[in-house]
Design a protein around this nucleic acid. Structure first.
Lengths: 217, 217, 217, 217
DNA sequence: GATGAATGAGAATTCATTCAT
DNA sequence: GATGAATGAATTCTCATTCAT
């Protein structure tokens, strides 16, 4: 999760690149994907062309920012899977991922667009998925998690709570924990009522993350 | 819930207004709030200036469209409160409201922006809130709903599931029912674990719906 | 060859459209295809957006200008074919077409680019070609033109002289007539030496006019 | 015609200069004058700044490339004047010069711009002119060339055929020979019809090569 | 000397909003 | 009243040229 240090880059360029990425993270997080490159440039203290030297397209910059966030989520997943208690691990993972989402409007807006269709993002998504699956398996074995739930469901529920949290955060910081609590309670096996729809196929999940045909951008 | 019929309007003007609103609902639902006025005008079969005669600003038009949707949700609430079984009523209400949300990108994108800060919307929000409260009270009495949940929570949970549904809908239509199921299971009183945060104050809820200070547009 | 009068257009719009086209003809003629839309707008006395309302793309505007010139050439061809003397008609045609080319840098630069690949241009090109063929046939019959020359050759020779004329015009207006004279002398049948290459196929000619793979613009 | 070897240059600098010129020749030949310095730098395997160290301006680089081509044409002229048969020499000269032109988009686009206004180019142009004049004189004496033609005319006719060849080359390589044939037939004295315009003055020819006041770039 | 990096001045294009018919 | 037209302020992206290492 180290900030991508490119050793082939000159010192000043590396510094600028770091600044650009930091600025882009902030700006897109605050303003969403419609923020202009000029805003990023200003916050980074560089000219717009400097950004375009590193990122041929605004979307490339956005993608880099998103990748960084997904790296964070993957790292979070890694740590969560090390937890002794799978239920605790799951909550930890969801809570931390939600926090990352909530503080990044751009990330939320990008979810389910073509920006997610990059090899590195796929890799990370696979990794996250595997981690969740491992936690789920242990949780189910321990009788702490209902058995009809899949990793894909966890991703979607996480996204659901995060979306509500995003709206709520300015007015009631952290209030989304209530909703995560409700959802986690809904994941218990005791008295669980059967789910009314089929589980998501992998293709459906992928399509949800990338495919969004609206907004081709 | 009749489309606001303004009796002072000439027949043709009234017809145009109706067309404009219908077109705007469709266009913003499909394309989101970034859709252009020109698109709306074209679908309505009127000139752009005709729209601006009725709505001084694009945001005014958006607000009218949103108001309409909230009217639908209020109407849905009214019907739901008539249900004999409060738990069924609650599910019905949430499911129908989610459906409304899911099929309107513009509505989702607008939630929590200044566009919601209109007297009529407040009225309707109050009405919806009251309906949910009534259902909740009956549900709690019947032992079907946990007691630490408020109407504000239901709104937010509804928005949460809707947000996930919005992403998922193209790839897996209706799949969001799974997540509503999970949430509803989480609302049962049996074995409910205490919620980790305070309930939302009314001010916080209002701020969540309107306040979003980012995105001044 | 009337300036495309669109009767469906409001008076002011028609006036602006006319101005835009006139300005575009002048500006592209003087500055070449790299002239900016802003230059055209300024000369036309309108805003840049007004141009983009009529022409979705700079290339569309360029295409309209080019089409106009080719119309002029087609009209010239029509008149030339009415000449009693085919040799005179041919000279008349070539001379007038060269004049049109010479006073339009944009036309010269566009020749052989994708801008020529439009149905209307193809039609006009066919018409010009047919006219030249008719003149050639009559000229050959009359013993005034060598028999191994085709209409495609005439187009290319015309373009050749025009290219030289373009460079020469500012310094020596009309001097290109000398070179047209030489070429026409080269077209006489008496003592004509055999041409060293095959005649152009239609496909080759078309490719020369449109195909230019360099400069995809 | 050795590549200008500057003895004051360090070995590596000399090598870079050579590479830059070679790359520039290729790039401008293929892409035309709008090719970017970055493209040249990349092909040369040097940084852009290295180019600007040697050539204060893009135009200076272009000028150097052009000079090189004119050197080639001058060399060609020299060889052509050694031909026993002046008509053959003339054809040889024109054909080879046309080939040089045709394979260099940049050269064609630059012809007649301020880039030609350099002492060395003037020298070379004089040399070429003298060579052509010598050939013409011998040709006229031998009755192989019409007497009303000047060296300036030959330059322009050459440029004319080259321009057509440039457009035609991708679709029909070498087809321009047909047009050179026609022009050469037009240069024969037998039955030559009087030329309709005055001969070019030297000033006019110079202006044609350099003067093009449009396109200040 | 050499180079990658930085930049500012455009260029095309879009869109909410105001005007003239 | 209705409408198409006009516009100016953005926005993304390019490139010759200058700077810092």
């Amino acid at each position: 999760m180290e900030t991508t240090a490119n050793p082939a880059l000159r010192a000043d360029a590396q510094r600028n690149l770091t600044r650009i990425l930091a600025a882009a993270r902030e700006v897109f997080a605050e303003e969403g994907v419609e923020a202009s490159i000029a805003q990023v440039a200003e916050r980074a203290g560089v000219g717009t062309a400097t950004i375009f030297r590193r990122f041929p397209t605004k979307d490339h910059l956005l993608a880099a920012v998103i990748e960084h966030r997904i790296e964070e989520i993957a790292e979070t997943t890694r740590r969560a899977t090390e937890s002794k208690d799978p239920a605790k691990g799951l909550r930890q993972l969801m809570a931390r991922a939600i926090e990352i989402y909530i503080h990044d409007r751009g990330l939320c807006e990008s979810t389910g667009t073509a920006l997610f269709d990059k090899p590195r993002i796929h890799e990370l998504a696979d990794e996250v998925n595997a981690g969740i699956e491992a936690l789920l398996a242990r949780g189910k074995d321990a009788g702490a998690v209902r058995t009809d739930i899949t990793a894909a469901d966890i991703s979607m529920l996480l996204f659901a709570v995060a979306s509500a949290g995003l709206k709520l955060e300015p007015a009631a910081p952290g209030a989304w924990h209530r909703y995560l609590d409700v959802v986690l309670d809904g994941l218990r096996p005791e008295g669980a009522r059967p789910l009314s729809r089929r589980v998501l196929t992998r293709a459906q999940l992928d399509a949800a993350w990338e495919g969004c045909p609206q907004r081709e951008r």
